[in-house]
Amino acid sequence: MSFIPRRPPRHLLRLLVLLAVAALLYFYSAPVFNAAARSLIRVDAPAPADVVIALGGDARCMRERRAAEIFNRGLARHVIVSGVPYAWGVHTGDAAKRYVESLGVPAERITVLRDAWNTRREAMDVNELMRAQGWNRAILVTSPFHSRRAHYTFRRYAAEYTFISMPLEPEPPEWQPERWWSRRGDLGITVREYLSWINTLAGGWR
C-alpha cells in the first residue's frame, strides 16, 4: 500500500490564507494606522517670517495662542487670524483678534480674515493679502492633523510665497496620532481629514 500525498482541499487553503491575513492585521495594523495618522503632520524648522497665520476653526483658540507666542518670540512681525460670522452679533475672527491682543500682540499688527469657511478660501485670501502687503514668507499655525493639508493648500493657491509649517503639539486636548481609533473625537477627526484630503486633491468643493 503506497502513500499518495493529497493536495489539501481548496477551502482549507483559503481559510489558512484568511487566518494569516487576520494575524498580520492584528499584529501590524496598529503601527500602520499610527504611521498613517502621523503622515498628516508636517513640521518645519522654525524660521523668521513676515507674518504668522493662525488658521480658523479652533474653538479653544490654541492656534491663536501659539501664533501670539511666535509673534512674541520675534519670529514674525504681523499676525493673521481668521473666522466666520458665526451667529447673530458674533464673528469668531473678532473674538480671535481680541484674544491675540490680550496675549500682547498690538491691534495694528493683527489682520482678520473674515470669511474663512475652509482652508482653500483662507489660502486665496492670504494670497491677496500678502501681495498687497509685500510679504513673502509666512508661518502657518494650525492643528497637527491639519498641518500637511494646510501647507499643501497654501503652496497650491499662494504659490509665489514661502510657507513654514509650525503646528500645535499633538498633545491633549489636541488630536493625537497614537492609537487615534481608540478615542471617539480623534477617530472622527482622522476620518474627516482623509476625506478632506480627497476633496483637496480632486480640486473639489470650495
Binding site: G89, V90, A95
Partner: peptide
Amino acid sequence: SQISWEVYSADFARAH
C-alpha cells in the same frame, strides 16, 4: 459650548 476664546454663541442667541 464655546466657539472662540470665552465666547459662547448661546449668549448672543439670548441677546438676539
